[in-house]
């Protein structure tokens, strides 16, 4: 029986955005009723275009942003009730840009030992040794301990960020686009490292990415987000083998595999990403959907169970869409 580490119930985060100089403020539902359970040892990927709310959701999981509605629980306890330091020991982030995620004025050593210091770790004498062990674990030569971030390459910096996240042995690591700022050859090194560390330290990952090739490679389960909602959620194999939501299909089509015999795909996602302050009615994807039906712009689709996950689309709705979907 697998154990649930994080469970989010109906989480919503609303920002008030000013619509213009004299127009007053409008609500923007960056995350809109997301429910999600993360099990120990899995790699859950959140995918979607920029502005879909995946980063806001990650910030809420880290406790950096309180949800406007709904609850997030860690091991059965609401995040709001967890001590800041206790939460920091459970969940840690890795950011996209290794150039802005390390304080340029601090040495590598003090960046990696900071979590120990903040947690008032009882053995200051062991900090340096433990940091150096962690550096070796993530593939950094310990001689870099006294160096500064500007003396390191992008890949090395990302390893420092990983070492900092892991030194207190968290249970969950939230990787926000961990490789998209890196070069191709470095990207694979970091992906391999993340895979190795997961096995070695028994970690749970939540990977946020728009790169579906990366997601396919490392994730065990995928949640596709669109305009603050999860529109399809499944284990990786069935999602990639049998994508159901038209948006998921379009996303998969737009993955450019290096195959010169293929042309650039036409995803038929005509219209641009809608303004999240003013989302379309009914199914929010309807203006871009290739298989849109009359009632899509009126009725909000419900979650329809599919395999081990669900899909939120009228095409798969028994009463309203199944017939059309089959035809």
């Amino acid at each position: 029986m697998s154990e649930t580490v994080i469970s989010a119930k109906d989480v919503t985060r609303t920002f008030m955005i000013s619509a213009g100089a004299f127009k007053g403020k409008k609500p923007l539902h960056a995350v809109n009723g997301v429910s999600l359970e993360v099990e120990r040892g899995e790699v859950l990927a959140l995918v979607g275009e920029s502005g879909c709310g995946k980063t806001t959701f990650a910030k809420m999981l880290l406790g950096l942003l309180p949800p406007t509605q709904g609850t997030i629980e860690f091991g059965g306890k609401p995040v709001a009730d967890v001590e800041r330091l206790t939460l920091a020991k459970m969940v840690q982030p890795i950011f996209q840009d290794p150039y802005s995620s390390l304080n340029p004025r601090k040495s590598i050593g003090s960046i990696i030992t900071l979590p120990l210091k903040v947690q008032n770790d009882p053995n200051p004498a062991t900090w340096r040794r433990r940091a150096e062990e962690m550096m070796e674990l993530v593939g950094l030569p310990p001689r870099l301990f006294e160096n500064f971030p500007n003396q390191l390459s992008g890949g090395q910096r990302q390893r420092v960020a990983i070492a900092r996240a892991l030194i207190n042995r968290p249970e969950v690591v939230i990787c926000d686009e961990p490789t998209s700022a890196l070069d191709v050859s470095v990207q694979s090194q970091i992906l391999n490292l993340l895979q190795d560390l997961r096995k070695e330290l028994n970690l749970t990952y939540i990977v946020i990415s728009h790169n579906l090739a990366v997601v396919e490679h490392i994730a065990t389960r995928v949640a596709v987000m669109y305009l603050g909602r999860i529109v399809e959620q499944k284990d990786t194999e069935s999602l990639f083998d049998n994508p159901e939501h038209p948006y998921t299909k379009a996303l998969l089509e737009s993955v450019l595999t290096p195959d010169p015999s293929l042309d650039v795909p036409d995803t038929h996602l005509g219209a641009a990403y809608p303004n999240p302050v003013d989302p379309p009615s009914g199914c929010t994807f309807n203006p871009r959907c290739a298989r849109v039906m009359d009632h899509c712009s009126v009725i909000e689709p419900k979650k329809i169970p599919s395999g081990k996950g669900f899909v939120q689309c009228h095409l798969y709705d028994e009463n309203e869409g199944r017939g059309r979907a089959a035809s």
Binding site: L87, P93, S100, S101, L102, N103, P115, V118, Q119
Partner: peptide, 17 residues
């Protein structure tokens, strides 16, 4: 707004720190 500040918050650093 830089990531290292978010990282420090996630580590559990206090605001003065």
């Amino acid at each position: 707004n830089l990531d290292y500040v978010a990282a420090a918050q996630a580590i559990g650093c206090s605001t003065p720190r």
